[in-house]
Design a protein around this nucleic acid. Structure first.
Lengths: 234, 234
DNA sequence: TAAATAGTGTCTATCAGACAATATATA
DNA sequence: TATATATTGTCTGATAGACACTATTTA
């Protein structure tokens, strides 16, 4: 059978890995999860979490990404999507490699406190977002992830996945502002826009954090948030 | 060195390929390039053009896609972008495999006449777009490609890449309509929208096809078309 | 001059952002 | 009651789509 011939001709198989760009929000600032490598190549350098595809274990690349998040990070992402695939001869000294990269968002409340210190703040105004030089082409990957994050924040409900289960409108507005870079000075227009989309609903509860002014109502994501998000935008 | 140990532990490497979803426009109808396979698996079935990564030859996956287009199809795509990566244990009977899929658009005038018969019409109203059952998961890939094509046609200048070097406004409008499914009844609003974007410019020439009414002016893509398109939208 | 599409100009409903006013908690 | 933010309501400039009108070619 000809596929045996193909196998005999035997194209050299490249390395195939997955990497996860995992974002969260700490003190209203965007953070990214990086791990220090403890082996060659790039021993000692910071890198995105990732790993080899396990052909016995993983049903697909997304499955592998979830396995990495679960086993290496003990994180269950609120949101996960394929970002892109990077590949080439030069990016990994071990040889021609490809990595399927996933963009993950995790609600801060889901994070174990140990995890928090592995998140590094994103500084939009600085070269490399204020991050050091990372292993492989991971700085480039982060650039792409940031672009995706920003553009999806503009016309989709992606920022909602950064929120805890209950939140106020002004908190949500701050997150949108942080994501898009646009400071929307006006709370009323923001509220109308969000409410009209039907992606949040009032819980009936009030924010009980003893502020010296009128307390805000608490909202939560609706079922529609996901469906709204699912329309193809790519 | 520890990476040698990694190599010794030796995760089984999956198969890595590229596939190209190549669209063109024939008689104002969207067509897709499919080839009949002449080897197992799926011998005799229609499939997207694709092939193995050649680690010696290809600088990266996009390079491999261009090589496939050039060598297998003798096509130089007007537009090429990474669509997604599909992967899994089941999609290829030869074993766990991943394929980096590229979406290509080629101007009809660039097609050799021999090529034209390998393009199959897309019928939006029919199951599987009126195409037969294809090899691998290629029907699923086409579904994704169509969604990307449609959504990008709405808010970007992608449809321009389907046009020949010179075209009239009404021709362009027909293409936009075919891509988005939206029939814009009004030519004047369409014209204003396109002109305001600055993505076309008048050639000064007239359409000389002896029609029994006022002839239309011919336009061409501007340099800005590409830049306009390049803003990240994903 | 009839017919058909090309191309220009204008009107209007809609909406995003600006702004004003009111509500309600604590200090 | 002063203060600060929450929340509601209104106004307005920009614009996408509707529509009317003029232009230009062949039959």
């Amino acid at each position: 059978m000809s596929y045996e011939i193909t196998a005999e001709i035997g194209f050299e198989r490249p390395i195939l890995t997955v990497d996860v760009v995992c974002f969260t929000l700490i003190n209203q600032q965007l953070h990214i999860l990086l791990l220090q490598r403890n082996q060659e190549p790039f021993d000692g350098k910071l890198a995105l979490p990732g790993g080899y595809i396990h052909v016995q274990e993983d049903a697909g690349a997304e499955d592998a990404a979830r396995r990495v998040a679960r086993d290496k990070l003990s994180i269950d992402p609120t949101y996960l999507e394929q970002l892109c695939t990077v590949s080439g001869r030069e990016r990994d000294p071990r040889g021609w490699s490809a990595s399927v990269v996933y963009l993950a968002v995790v609600t801060p409340s889901r994070l174990r406190s140990k995890r928090v210190q592995e998140f590094y703040p994103i500084n939009d105004d600085t070269t490399l977002y204020g991050l050091p030089e990372l292993a492989f082409d991971h700085n480039d990957i982060i650039e792409m992830a940031m672009q995706r994050l920003r553009s999806k924040s503009i016309y989709s409900s992606l920022p909602l996945f950064f929120m805890p289960s209950k939140f106020t409108m002004s908190e949500l507005q701050q997150v949108y502002a942080a994501m898009t870079g646009v400071r929307r000075t006006n709370p009323s227009n923001f509220r109308r826009q969000i409410v009209d989309q039907g992606i949040v609903e009032p819980t009936g509860e009030m924010d009980r954090r003893m502020v010296s002014h009128r307390p805000a109502e608490l909202f939560r994501r609706t079922q529609r948030t996901l469906r709204y998000f699912d329309r193809e935008i790519g």
